[in-house]
Design a protein around this nucleic acid. Structure first.
Length: 825
RNA sequence: GCCGAAGUGGCGAAAUGGCAUACGCGCUGGUCUCAAAAACCAGUCGGGGCAACCCGGUGUGGGUUCAACUCCCACCUUCGGCACCA
């Protein structure tokens, strides 16, 4: 029977049912067995699965199945990151409820996942929009609130007008909303924050432990956390009473500071300009900058603009009086919102100083041009050199001077060494409906009151009027809003913002260890056994957002004493995107390929094989219809091989004296075991693992069996079995079917992973490459153990080699046993 | 500007410093067929040669080495991240 489309569908459904009925992938804690936790970043349920999901989950599935066959106790769960704005938007558009929309998407998604035959423990399936899940969000929030890690503050926040909600810093990509790409503006609002900055040091330090993460992800996190060591310098304002604190990483240039610049939003601005003659002009300027969006303000080629306050500060190292300016190129969010300007050694300051004719003073001598004068400078010199005009530090190398000047300033109490972080606290309030309610109540008498633990969950009300406009929808659900204060029982109001959905996904991997637990956020014994996740797999787009937040939550749980490890994900794989015609597949570009349509024609196995074979997991993958066809052809070959050449009545390999053909078959069989095992284990090189199976197939195809000789048939049988077992993780349905057909009773998953015989890999004769001066000049079939001396004799006796050498003297003879000889003449 | 990754046939791609292009696609020719499809067999980096074989060749230019896709230096291109970060 050929491997027809009809047959494929029958077989795939059959085995999916068997796996389900027998609970083959159900994971139970077992202290006697070594665990392995494979997890892919759980999907946002937006409808049917797409090729990106298929790729992500196929990679994970191969790893999970491979580990199962290697005898690990594998946890491989799946769930849905189900809260979020798209559900709300879709509900508004289609006049339905977000819950309805979300659960119907989940149904479609689950069906798609099952059709692919993934090895999930479906008993652990969960969705974050279920109150059995999000009540623990609320619990975590309360624990953070108790410890001062969740707090409310009024400040400028990122606001996306099109999404009608606030955004975390991590959600602003290049000045635009991560979801809808509209420009983000600043708004002053009272909002809830998580104090992720308390963990800056740990989040940075522990990156060192992540040696099995892609280095670029580690680097991106490093940059995001952005530790910079420097000095806070205190500049007294002439005529007092204020002191301006300036942060600098270049304290070595302090003697070259010729003016000071404040950010327009700097709190001292008001005090400094009050009562000055040009007060109004300055205020107008501040106003003008405030009205610019961030991207307008920091636009790449934008000219720096500023205004003189009329006031002066005293440089504490030399007593120089320097003017205080306000300029748009200084940002309130970074450092202290005030800088000392050193135009000779900072290009930004240089451009500004030239624009407004401010003074320059060289303090680092450029070794290339030591006599350069200020008036000849074409740009700032940002390199190294010896200090000049720097009082007691003249002549010092500027890098050495950094520490010395900082120490000196510290002693004189005119500066203090400090560390500045780029990481900001995490804004989690969202003015949207479809999210976990923040468990807080506002009481006129008691103020901000946390909802007591025993009153959780604060359930999201069903009936809400959503328009996508006019603030939090929950604020209009009066039955929800009006409540009693847990402390005084007086009238109170609930918090009507919901939590950012990244909160939900920051701890789901822990919940998967005990998803049914109704009394605790997670079972600590289960978590101690299963966690950390051994292999995490997902897209690079989460390099900062989700992965940073999850690391933060993990550290928080450790501080709560619930877990004992620091990092949630031991090894991380970021899979490449799936492209069509050179562009990322997306609905808006209209270049998607529906996995279902491929499955319909070729089956899930061909789709899986095609995706695994086309490119290494981390690389981009260009989708090709012909490649699926090729995968199907290959599986068809395997199918026909079993049908036509496997003889079930012969099952033992008895022959001991193998001929050349037998040895070649055995060599390829063992080589395939070695290659597939190593390729999966070392670098998830599925593409080359599969190619080695194709090579084995090619050898099997040419292997001839004498009908009378049962030992040859036995060898062939064994080679066929090896193909099926090794292929089993890649294309599980067809392999289970064939495995059963050749007489096995148990699932292929229960079969131990095969081992190879190193001796069988050795060849009696090897091809020795002979080079002359590194150029290929001949090949010789030589017995494997031939010594260097004997090789020399054979080679130099060869007429072609003799011709090539001619009469030139041999200077050197390089010999690599079993591989190559190089004659240098 | 800074940081990171990558650049190899017509295409997807492969190569512990040791035969460049494995494996697959596509293409060409053949077997089978009335014919086609499928399947199978052979060929397939460029140039020269009837041929054995020779020459060139992994983004560019240098270097290290008996030997470089691989290591080092400089540059070009593409992609990704960060970015008036003081």
């Amino acid at each position: 029977m050929p491997y027809t489309t009809h047959e494929i569908h029958r077989i795939e459904a059959k085995w999916q049912k068997i796996w389900q009925d027998q609970k083959i992938f159900s994971a139970q804690m077992d202290a006697a067995k070594e665990k392995y936790y494979v997890l892919e970043m759980f999907p946002y349920p937006s409808g049917k699965i797409h090729m990106g999901h298929v790729r992500n989950y196929t990679i994970a599935d191969v790893i999970a199945r491979f580990k199962m066959m290697q005898g690990f106790n594998v946890l491989h769960p799946m769930g849905y990151d189900a809260f979020g704005q798209p559900a709300e938007n879709a509900a508004i558009k289609n006049k339905t409820h977000p819950a309805h929309w979300t659960y119907s998407c989940i149904d479609q998604m689950r069906a798609g996942l099952k059709r692919m035959g993934f090895s999930y423990d479906w008993d652990r399936e969960m969705a974050t929009c279920d109150h059995a899940y999000y009540r623990w969000n609320q619990w975590i929030f309360l624990k953070m609130y108790e410890r001062g890690l969740a707090f409310r503050k009024a400040s400028l926040v990122n606001w996306c007008a099109s999404c009608a909600t606030t955004l975390a810093n991590e959600e602003v990509i290049g000045g635009a909303c991560w979801r809808c790409q509209s420009q983000v503006v600043q708004r002053k609002l009272d909002q809830w924050y998580l104090k992720i900055t308390d963990y800056s040091e740990q989040l940075l330090e522990d990156l060192r432990k992540l040696d099995q993460w892609p280095s670029r992800v580690v680097t991106m996190q490093q940059n995001w956390i952005g530790r910079s060591r420097g000095v806070n310098i205190f500049f007294p304002v002439k005529g007092g009473p204020a002191t301006i604190t300036v942060f600098t990483t270049r304290v070595d240039t302090i003697f070259g500071a010729t003016y000071i610049v404040l950010a327009p939003e700097h709190p001292l601005v008001e005090q400094l300009i009050a009562g000055l003659p040009n007060e109004k002009k300055i205020r107008d300027f501040v106003e003008k900058v405030a009205n610019e969006s961030k991207s307008q303000r920091v636009g790449t080629d934008k000219k720096k603009e500023g205004i003189f306050t009329g006031r002066y500060a005293v440089n504490p190292v030399n007593g120089n009086e320097i003017p205080i300016w306000i300029a748009d190129y200084v940002l309130m969010e970074y450092g202290t919102g005030a800088i000392m300007a050193v135009p000779t050694h900072d290009q930004r300051d240089f451009l500004f100083a030239k624009e407004y004719q401010l003074p320059l003073c060289i303090v680092i001598r450029n070794p290339q041009d030591p006599h350069l004068r200020e008036e000849d400078l074409k740009s700032a010199y940002e390199g190294d050199g010896a200090l000049v005009h720097s009082g007691p530090f003249d002549g010092l190398d500027n890098r050495e001077a950094v520490g010395k000047i900082a120490a000196w300033m510290g002693e004189k109490k005119i500066g203090a060494t400090t560390v500045h972080w780029r990481l900001r606290d995490w804004l989690i309030s969202r003015q949207r409906y479809w999210g976990a309610p923040i468990p807080i109540v506002y009481c006129d008498r008691c103020g901000i009151v946390a909802v007591p633990e025993n009153q959780l969950p604060v359930v999201l009300p069903q009936e809400v009027n959503m328009t996508g406009e006019g603030g939090s929808p929950l604020a209009r659900a009066l039955e929800f809003v009006h409540t009693l204060c847990p402390q005084c029982q007086g009238k109170a109001r609930r918090e009507t913002d919901t939590m950012a959905t990244f909160f939900d996904s920051s701890w789901y991997f822990l919940r998967f260890c005990s998803p049914e637990n109704g009394s605790k956020v997670f079972d600590t014994k289960e978590a101690a056994y299963w966690m950390p996740v051994d292999q995490y797999i997902g897209g690079i787009e989460h390099a900062i957002l989700h992965l940073l937040y999850s690391r933060f939550f993990t550290k928080f749980f450790k501080d709560l004493g619930l877990i004992s490890f620091e990092e949630p994900f031991t090894r991380l794989l970021t899979q490449g995107m799936v492209l069509k015609n050179g562009e990322v597949m997306s609905k808006s570009k209209g270049n998607t390929v529906d996995p279902d349509s491929v499955i319909e024609r070729y089956g899930a196995d061909s789709l899986r094989l095609c995706i695994l074979f086309a490119a290494p997991p981390e690389d981009q993958l260009e989708w090709s219809d012909t490649a699926v066809d090729a995968s199907w052809k290959f599986l068809n070959r395997v199918w026909n091989l079993v049908e036509q050449r496997f003889v079930a009545t012969i099952d033992h390999v008895t022959a001991t004296d193998l001929d050349q053909q037998d040895k070649a078959l055995e060599r390829e069989r063992n080589a395939a075991i070695k290659k597939v095992t190593e390729d999966i284990a070392v670098g998830y090189k599925f593409n080359t693992a599969i190619s080695s199976l194709m090579i084995l197939m090619n050898v099997i195809d040419t292997y001839k069996v004498n009908k009378i000789d049962t030992s040859k048939q036995a060898l062939l049988n064994r080679a066929i079995e090896t193909v099926i077992v090794l292929l089993g993780s890649f294309t599980p349905h067809i392999c289970e079917e064939l495995w059963e057909r050749i007489g096995h009773k148990e699932s292929i998953i229960k079969t131990p992973w095969p081992t190879y015989d190193a001796q069988a890999l050795d060849q009696d004769f090897v091809e020795l490459v002979v080079q002359i001066n590194g150029k290929l000049r001949g090949r010789f079939q030589i017995a494997r153990q031939t010594t260097e001396e004997d090789v020399k004799k054979i080679i130099f006796a060869d007429t072609k080699i003799q011709e090539a050498i001619a009469d030139k003297p041999v200077k050197r003879f390089v010999f690599v046993a079993g591989r190559l000889a190089n004659i240098v003449i």
